[in-house]
């Protein structure tokens, strides 16, 4: 249904969902960029963040506490997974790393299923953002606008961490040249642990922020994971700006295609990814020779 109001509505919706996708993808991309590990458990971590927030919300009734706990919990989970499992895999082929994170993802999903059942859980939006916001002809849920703002703020925060702090410098150095970090006389393992935690946090944070929008099921992460891959491939693996650009592009593709026929949204996403691969294999903002 292509009308101007609908076009503008979908454009805005694409921006909102794209920002969230960008945030999740940034987590994936900085983990890969720094550690060289493609984290297939990333979708599960997104889901886990939502559940962690749900637990905190049930206990306190506070949205802010839920978000904070969801994010922090994932930092811890990420760091523990890095310390206990991923660390065994730095010297092994990338395929092994993919396999083990794939397995971790399944374990997380099934643990959540065991703990919470298959029933959906919902976290209500905070009362100050529960209503709808009329924006001319477009009525949009206030909370989704809040999600957009939060995602943008989180991306800005990540940007500052990456480009303005010592940790960020190390991470970026690692993305440029993984050998260099060791030479800087830095405890690489501690940095890796932190980066994995931060990457997991990006997913978990997105998960809890998104929880009031979608309602939670243990299988929530799977489709997000695939979309995240597309985002990262379009933007360029390991590129922070690429993840943001890719996220926004993916969000818009999904939303705008659905005007014509929602059934083709995902297909169109993969068509664009294929085009990018054919025309610019390293991704739109990716560095050449990093594959």
């Amino acid at each position: 249904m292509i009308t101007w109001p609908n076009f503008v509505s979908q454009l805005f919706n694409g921006l909102a969902s794209g920002a969230l996708l960008a945030l999740i993808s940034c987590g994936l991309t900085i983990i890969y960029g720094t550690l060289g590990v493609l984290n297939l458990a990333h979708g599960a971590m997104f889901m886990l963040g939502g559940y962690a927030g749900y637990v905190a919300f049930q206990a306190t009734g506070s949205y802010v506490v839920a978000v904070a706990f969801g994010a922090l919990f994932l930092v811890v989970v990420g760091a523990v997974i890095e310390r206990v499992v991923i660390r065994q895999f730095y010297d092994r082929p990338p395929e092994d790393q993919i396999l083990v994170t794939f397995g971790i993802g399944i374990v997380i999903v099934e643990l959540v299923r065991l703990g919470f059942g298959s029933l959906t859980k919902t976290v209500p939006p905070p009362s100050w953002a529960a209503g709808v916001t009329p924006m001319g002809f477009l009525i949009y849920p206030t909370y989704r606008i809040v999600v957009l703002a939060i995602a943008a703020a989180a991306l800005a925060a990540l940007y500052i961490v990456l480009y303005r702090t010592r940790l960020g410098m190390i991470v970026r150095a690692g993305i440029e040249d993984s050998g260099m970090v060791g030479m800087l006389g830095i405890n690489v393992y501690r940095v890796f642990m932190l980066v994995f935690g931060v990457g997991a946090m990006a997913a978990g944070f997105a998960g809890i922020v998104n929880a009031p929008v979608v309602s939670l099921t243990p299988d929530l992460g799977e489709s997000i994971l695939v979309q995240t891959f597309v985002v990262v491939v379009i933007g360029g693996v390991g590129s922070f700006p690429g993840a943001i650009l890719g996220g926004l592009i993916a969000g818009e593709i999904l939303s705008l295609t659905s005007m014509v026929n929602p059934a083709y949204s995902e297909v169109m996403l993969f068509v664009v990814m294929t085009l990018v691969l054919l025309l610019r294999p390293q991704g739109l903002l990716g560095l050449k020779g990093r594959a």
């Binding site: 493609l38 993919i98 695939v226 891959f229 995902e266 993969f270």
Partner: peptide, 26 residues
């Protein structure tokens, strides 16, 4: 096969999803 390693894995996932969506609807 234009790419290897993690790229290859990610692309195959995405392409398989495309097949699924195509089969499912169009």
């Amino acid at each position: 096969l234009r790419r290897t390693g993690i790229y290859f894995a990610m692309i195959t996932v995405a392409i398989a999803e495309t097949f699924f969506f195509l089969e499912n609807s169009p």
